[in-house]
């Protein structure tokens, strides 16, 4: 049994303790996430490889054959769906970082309440989670983009901007989902709701597999509000040179900026209320 060396109040530098907390929360989240790194990598690599096989060799071959070798929008089907698949993977992958950890923090282990007892403030706690979420979006986009490039599905020159679109769109989406998960008081059906009522319609009706204009007009609104459609359009502009007027390009980018700002603005007060009121 050891006696504790203890000088009350001397160990902590208040200035250091109250600044840069977002990065320390991010470091904690990374440490926590690293326990699941093999799953993250498996998802990040397995997803694009399986999709490329399916859309390149399977459906892609069928579509290309039936369009007289012209594919869609003048490119092969694989090239057409590639940017959408990347955005879709980034958007789906990043959600892991703002669902499980948030439910864990508020509902399961309630670890947020332990964090709240330190010198962290609510914004640092949120920002730290978002830093790691963005990192996950970046990681997924790099892996996916790398595989797409290796398969010749996208030109090398478009890789970097496409990764940026993947990170930007997924981060904006994560902020919005975060504003919802931060309000949850139980975990019942959260993942079912997300997958059945959000991801599935988003995946099917955002112009992922065919141009949105091919959809009936009464379904097109799903694409207009979907971050996946905006990311897909930007991606196709970058990779296959799809013609998009400047104003619409600006709308696509602004859509993510607004989504991010609104998501964060809706999340901050919830954390403050639940942890510090």
């Amino acid at each position: 049994m050891t006696d504790l060396r203890f000088t009350p109040g001397q160990a902590v530098d208040v200035r250091r303790a109250t600044r840069g907390g977002s990065w320390r929360v991010a470091a904690y989240r990374y440490k926590n996430m690293s326990k699941w790194m093999s799953s993250v990598i498996a998802f990040g690599l397995g997803n694009p490889i399986l999709n490329l096989i399916a859309f390149g060799i399977g459906i892609g071959a069928l579509v290309d054959k039936n369009t007289g070798g012209h594919g869609i929008a003048g490119v092969s089907y694989l090239q057409f769906v590639a940017p959408a698949l990347l955005a879709s993977a980034a958007i789906q992958g990043i959600v892991d970082e703002v669902t499980g950890p948030v439910l864990d923090g508020f509902v399961w282990d309630e670890y947020f309440f332990a964090q709240a007892a330190t010198s962290l403030n609510h914004k640092q706690m949120i920002n730290g989670i978002m830093i790691i979420a963005s990192g996950r979006g970046l990681f997924t986009s790099i892996l996916y983009g790398g595989v797409l490039t290796a398969f010749g599905a996208i030109p090398l020159a478009s890789l970097l901007p496409l990764i940026l679109v993947g990170v930007g769109s997924s981060t904006a989406w994560a902020a919005l989902v975060f504003s919802w998960t931060s309000r949850l008081t139980d975990a019942n059906s959260v993942f079912d709701i997300l997958h059945r009522f959000v991801f599935m319609p988003m995946f099917l009706f955002s112009g992922t597999f065919y141009p949105l204009s091919s959809s009936p007009i009464y379904l097109q609104w799903i694409g207009w509000i979907s971050p996946l459609w905006h990311a897909t359009e930007l991606g196709r502009y970058l990779t296959i040179g799809e013609q998009i007027p400047l104003w619409l390009l600006i709308v696509h980018v602004l859509y993510f900026v607004i989504m991010f700002v609104v998501g964060m603005a809706l999340t901050y007060p919830v954390f403050k209320r639940r942890l510090f009121s």
């Binding site: 109250t18 007892a117 330190t118």
Partner: peptide
């Protein structure tokens, strides 16, 4: 001054 105070508190919930 919540964060500044909490820097010097030890909490066992």
């Amino acid at each position: 001054k919540g964060p500044e105070i909490r820097a010097h508190l030890g909490v066992v919930p």
